[in-house]
């Protein structure tokens, strides 16, 4: 085999046109929740929390990257029941705090109001919140975002086939970093 043929083939294989394999894969375990877990209200809540943790900036945010669906899949099919219940109870607490303070759902209050509640959650000052709930939510949002195609290809630079290793690659603070 000629090396350039292989590279050309690999370019197509590792490139963008993955719609078909992805469509097939979505039916397999580990891509979408095997059965719906969230109510509509929970979907809206998880979406709102996700987008405050990783908001849209000059690149898309968590919702555009499909993070809420990722979280639903992980809670439905990955976590043990005790951890799933902690998550759901923590989300319920956030919802109750929003309704108590603003008489509206978390998803319906302003981003600034949402941030105040999340800051309280981070500081562990909300009663009845499971321990380390905020950090767990933060971690699963970051995992979902930075392993998403959006996170890898838009927020970071995705190198499916680097072709070389440079151990002294010029880098300026604040520029994009490489995804896994």
């Amino acid at each position: 085999m000629d090396r350039r043929d292989l590279l050309a083939g690999a370019g197509a294989f590792f490139g963008v046109s993955l719609a078909l394999p992805l469509a097939r894969a979505l039916a397999a375990p580990g891509f979408a929740a095997s059965q719906p877990l969230f109510t509509q209200d929970q979907q809206a809540l998880v979406a709102a929390v996700s987008d405050r943790i990783v908001p849209a900036t000059d690149t898309p945010g968590a919702v555009a990257a499909g993070v809420p669906q990722f979280i639903e899949m992980m809670l439905a099919d990955w976590y043990a029941a005790v951890d799933r219940n902690d998550f759901l109870s923590g989300f319920a607490t956030l919802e109750a705090v929003a309704r108590g303070r603003h008489d509206r759902a978390f998803a319906a209050i302003t981003p600034a109001q949402q941030d105040v509640i999340l800051t309280d959650a981070m500081a562990n000052t909300l009663p009845a919140l499971p321990p380390r709930f905020f950090e767990h939510v933060r971690q699963i949002v970051l995992l979902g975002y930075y392993t998403s195609e959006t996170g890898c290809r838009q927020e970071r630079i995705y190198l499916p086939l680097p072709g070389r290793y440079d151990g002294a690659y010029p880098y300026a603070t604040g520029t994009k970093v490489f995804s896994s």
Partner: peptide, 17 residues
């Protein structure tokens, strides 16, 4: 081979159970 993290089941980590 060649798949991005988003194309791996559970984004790469099998459920602990």
């Amino acid at each position: 081979e060649g798949k991005g993290p988003w194309e791996l089941a559970y984004r790469g980590n099998l459920p602990p159970a």
